[in-house]
Amino acid sequence: MRPRIGFAAIELLEAAGCEVIVPASQTCCGQPAWNSGDRAAAAQLAKKVIVEFEGFEYVVAPSGSCADHIKNEYPVILADEPEWCSRAVALGRRVYELTDFLVNVAKLDRVPGSFAGRVTYHDSCTGLRSLGIKAQPRALLARLPGVELQEMSGAEECCGFGGTFSVKFGELSAAIAERKCANACATGAAAIVGGDLGCLLNIEGKLRRMGDHETQVLHIAEVLTAKP
């Protein structure tokens, strides 16, 4: 959907001095299956990810919910298979959400991009409440001198995406997104920034339907690597 985000994440990690490899065989972490109650499918994909990624020093995802799924849910999904479960736990220790990794592990102090303007930040639920992603993206934004962060009211409230929820209960999901968009737009921000693609698609889709074609909806990695 948004290859730019992936490349921006790579750029940030390389700026922090990391060697970045994207395994060609990776597909999906399996979260949609797990959240829909399909344990078998979730376990199948979890094993695939474990095999693909357990050889790396760190695993970084530009999404709080994917990172959390690998880190905290894999051991639950594979609880009945002790060997797999311990491999999941071992991998989980090295899994990070992008901004968390950049701030707390890689200690990135200069961000490569330059972005100017007022932005507001939407805290994605899983990153916020399961991984404690709150200060990290703000710390990174603060390193861009041209960025003015204006907090929206209800920044920590769900945008209504909820994975399969968004396609099971479309109207309801969109009605929740409407509140989020109104709160975000009230800040006068030129861009709504977040850390999870699902939320961003939802927010952008709602904004466009509301007739707002101006406000940008960006992944934090895009902002941090933006070219003037």
């Binding site: 109207e171 999901s173 952008e204 466009r208 339907r209």
Partner: peptide, 17 residues
């Protein structure tokens, strides 16, 4: 269809990552 009941779907950039 549920997705687009109340909102648009943002267009992808073209090629995949």
């Amino acid at each position: 269809p549920e997705w687009t009941k109340g909102r648009d779907f943002p267009a992808p950039e073209g090629k995949t990552f």
